[in-house]
Write a protein that binds this DNA or RNA. Sequence first.
DNA 1: CGAAAAACGTTATATCATAACAATTGGATT
DNA 2: AATCCAATTGTTATGATATAACGTTTTTCG
Lengths: 172, 172
Amino acid sequence: MMPAKQSSPDFKKSQFPAKNHDHGRCIDDAVAAAEALCARKGLRLTKIRRRVLEMVWQGHNPVGAYELLDRLRDEHKGAAPPTVYRALEFLLDCGLIHRIESLNAYVGCGTPDHLHSGQFLICRHCKRIAELSDDTISETIRSRADRLGFAVQRQTIEILGDCADCRRSQTA
Amino acid sequence: MMPAKQSSPDFKKSQFPAKNHDHGRCIDDAVAAAEALCARKGLRLTKIRRRVLEMVWQGHNPVGAYELLDRLRDEHKGAAPPTVYRALEFLLDCGLIHRIESLNAYVGCGTPDHLHSGQFLICRHCKRIAELSDDTISETIRSRADRLGFAVQRQTIEILGDCADCRRSQTA
DNA sequence: CGAAAAACGTTATATCATAACAATTGGATT
DNA sequence: AATCCAATTGTTATGATATAACGTTTTTCG
Ligand SMILES: [Zn+2]
Ligand SMILES: [Zn+2]
Ligand SMILES: [Zn+2]
Ligand SMILES: [Zn+2]
């Protein structure tokens, strides 16, 4: 018998996903959260926007705009750069995805309930991304900025390194 | 009589420059530090590289590669994108400048003595950048990553907001 | 319905960055 | 000084990311 897939993806609360997690559930949850959020705010999650969101959630890796475009073209003739960039802009504005500045790429947000700048751990090897929401980090930065009279509006925090799984594989 | 310009630019130790600071001194110091660093490490600060470094230090604002290229062309016929990107790569590798990922732009490093990932405050209004070197911030991040088994290799920290000077101007 | 707004289609172009290879230069070694 | 090698620069082309502009279609709502 196969080992049961992890049914409640707790890693969304700040860790890298287990190798065998039920990723279909990640996508479903993300779409469900998006539907709920858009319903609540009176925003329109159109077919294209939903599809781009699903494609961003294809994995826990960041995805480039033109990679999304290629995939979109497979099923949507006439897709062009503005098609995907408009969808990305919408999803960013909603807080459904984040942009990773250091990679020019996009990643789904697992906690889109309130708008926030993300804190990201990015593995150099497997390319997976984990989003943190560590108040200690953001407060440390905020207080340091405060002392200089600087009013923080948005924090871009992207930490590159090696995730636990990849470190184990390397030594093995 | 004119007020004396600030002769020792202490703001290089983590703050925004005073409005009337002697910026010529900033440039001279940066070039002197670069000469020293390259001499110490046996690297060649060629004419182009030095000139690009000076141009990055034209102010405390981040500067784009093609803006540098335009300026370089004024005095160096035959300058092309690779010319400036090669110089930038050299200066980045030496730690003489930093790249601001969220702006696709470059800024001089005031403390190039040891290689480091910078922490930047970026003012939305005046576009000036201040580089912090706050160990509390980097250690907070490192310890949080450690707990997840993540080995930090590089931190990208870019804080967007309003600097003290601009906040004063706005309320006035 | 009919007007207005939002979303989308389409074409062109802006902006940022690198590949590839030839020519030149700088500096060490005879 | 002549030679050689490696580093740097010149040159051309192209790749990768993103937006402008404007017309058409779809949705919303009175
Ligand atoms: Zn998943
Ligand atoms: Zn998020
Ligand atoms: Zn990994
Ligand atoms: Zn300012």
